[in-house]
Design a protein around this nucleic acid. Structure first.
Length: 157
DNA sequence: GCCAACGTTGGC
DNA sequence: GCCAACGTTGGC
């Protein structure tokens, strides 16, 4: 079983949205490295940190569970979608999605600034300067540590 | 809004 | 295959 981190701008899709819907197709990944992780390495049952990016307080806000194998991203074929890709064909899709389902919303999101202060998280891809990868692997140790920190934040609140 | 870092495209 | 130009991401 593997661990991941998924970025989303909360104005576009947040942990609250996932909690409400229960499950969603993780659409719109348009970076090859991120796609390869989705398509080739994610397995049903894997867990992912749900990260809120490009927002006032960037933070890990919850946990999602991978709920399907990868399949072609339907938005690449939809001329009306902002994710439309004219180079993609049904025979030769370029972009993929997995379904993700709600697992947990942190009572108190763990801010990026707090994560930067945490010596247990040294080497985490998210904390690398200039890191933009929207789908990234997370070590089990880092995943467990962040989950524990969120539980402590909950207990302290 | 600024801007550094990064990924992709396309001319050569 | 190189690399400049461009567009995007995302923290601040």
């Amino acid at each position: 079983m593997s661990y991941w981190l998924l970025k989303s701008e909360p104005t576009s899709y947040s942990t609250g949205d996932l909690r409400r819907e229960g499950k969603t197709a993780w659409e719109g990944v348009r970076n090859f490295q991120a796609r390869n992780f989705l398509r080739d390495s994610m397995k049903v049952g894997d867990l992912a940190l749900f990260y809120h990016s490009a927002t006032e307080v960037p933070a890990v806000a919850g946990i999602a569970r991978i709920a399907s194998e990868a399949y072609p991203d339907p938005t690449q074929f939809d001329a009306k979608s902002m994710y439309f890709d004219p180079t993609a064909t049904k025979e030769n899709p370029r972009w993929y999605v997995v379904d993700v389902e709600f697992a947990e919303a942190f009572a108190q999101p763990l801010a990026l600034s707090k994560l930067h202060d945490d010596t247990a998280l040294v080497g985490m891809e998210l904390l690398r300067r200039g890191s933009r990868l929207s789908v990234q692997p997370v070590t089990k140790e880092h995943f467990v540590h962040i989950k524990k920190r969120s539980a402590r934040a909950l207990a302290a609140a």
